[in-house]
Design a protein around this nucleic acid. Structure first.
Length: 267
DNA sequence: AAGCCTGCCAACCGCGGAGCG
DNA sequence: ACGCTCCGCGGTTGGCAGGCT
């Protein structure tokens, strides 16, 4: 009984036999098709590779989104997930998951919260609704998006929109967190599906912001208490950093399992 | 250039369920 | 009810290719 990779000749034998006679009995099929393979191997080769309509190549954006969503609903029911993805086999979806998703969840990442998104904020008046912002960190913030005379509502809206847009455009604060690969996964669409932003800002004194979404509750916040100084340092952090238990990262948001705490990047 | 490491994918293996006698 | 066969599913492995040192 032969094992290992299939040759072109074997593929052709199997393909032409099934196209002519169908697969009426996998155990007996190899004998009649002239193949030195077990029935199981023939079935697998047909179902996963030779069967007409089997899609090859990278998963599209939509397919990735469906896989992630369905896996959250169904768990490791690969065949059930495959039913929703025409042309994709359970084996391929399983491989996709293990290589691109599960692998990165292995508990060798340190579970440290990301308090690294700090920036320096200049207050230029005591007006509660007026301040200018500059960033002295590596985030590619768009300074122009935060003007000096924005109202509280405008700023809230701006931050909310900034998160949406920057994720979509792969630039800005959110893109720092949601890297390009995360975008390919359509994570932002899932993550920010019902995002809202609330908070308050003052020229000097307390600044506090909370960003929430319907599914996860508040997921990051920022607060600072500046005196009348010209500049202050604020820091953003996740409201509920994951904890590690028995070598597994437990998070308040199942989608945060895709977050790499080593690099502070989603993948 | 060579050895090592890592990611990916095809294929194998074991188990359990369905169907049948 | 029981045992047998077959099939499909999910976990795992093996090997190749490309990148890194």
């Amino acid at each position: 009984m032969k094992k290992g990779a299939w040759s072109e000749d074997e593929d052709e034998k199997l393909r032409s036999y099934i196209q002519r006679y169908g697969h009426w009995n996998w155990r007996l099929l190899p004998k009649y098709a002239g193949l030195k393979r077990c029935g199981k191997s023939c079935r697998l080769r047909w179902v996963n590779y030779l069967k007409p309509g089997v899609k090859r190549g990278n998963f599209s954006k939509e397919e990735r989104q469906i896989v992630i969503k369905l896996h959250a609903e169904l768990g490791n029911k690969w065949s059930a997930i495959a039913e929703k993805l025409p042309g994709r086999t359970d084996n391929e979806i399983k491989n996709f998951w293990h290589t691109r998703v599960e692998r990165r969840r292995k508990p060798n990442h340190s579970a440290k919260p990301i308090n690294t998104l700090s920036f320096t904020e200049k207050t230029d008046s005591s007006e509660a609704t007026s301040f200018s912002t500059s960033q002295d960190l590596s985030l590619p913030f768009d300074d122009a998006s935060l003007s000096t005379n924005s109202s509280k509502e405008e700023l809230e809206l701006m931050l909310s929109e900034m998160l949406r847009e920057d994720v979509a455009q792969n630039e800005g604060l959110a893109a720092h967190v949601f890297n390009e690969e995360a975008l390919e996964f359509d994570y932002p669409e899932l993550r920010y599906s019902e995002l809202s932003c609330s908070g308050s800002s003052y020229g000097s004194g307390l600044n506090s912001w909370t960003v929430e979404d319907e599914a996860c509750g508040s997921f990051w916040n920022e607060s600072s208490n500046a005196s009348n100084s010209e500049s202050e340092t604020s820091s953003y952090s996740y409201a509920n950093p994951p904890v590690e238990e028995d070598g597994l990262l437990l998070t308040y948001d199942p989608l945060l399992q895709y977050f790499d705490y080593e690099t502070s990047l989603f993948w």
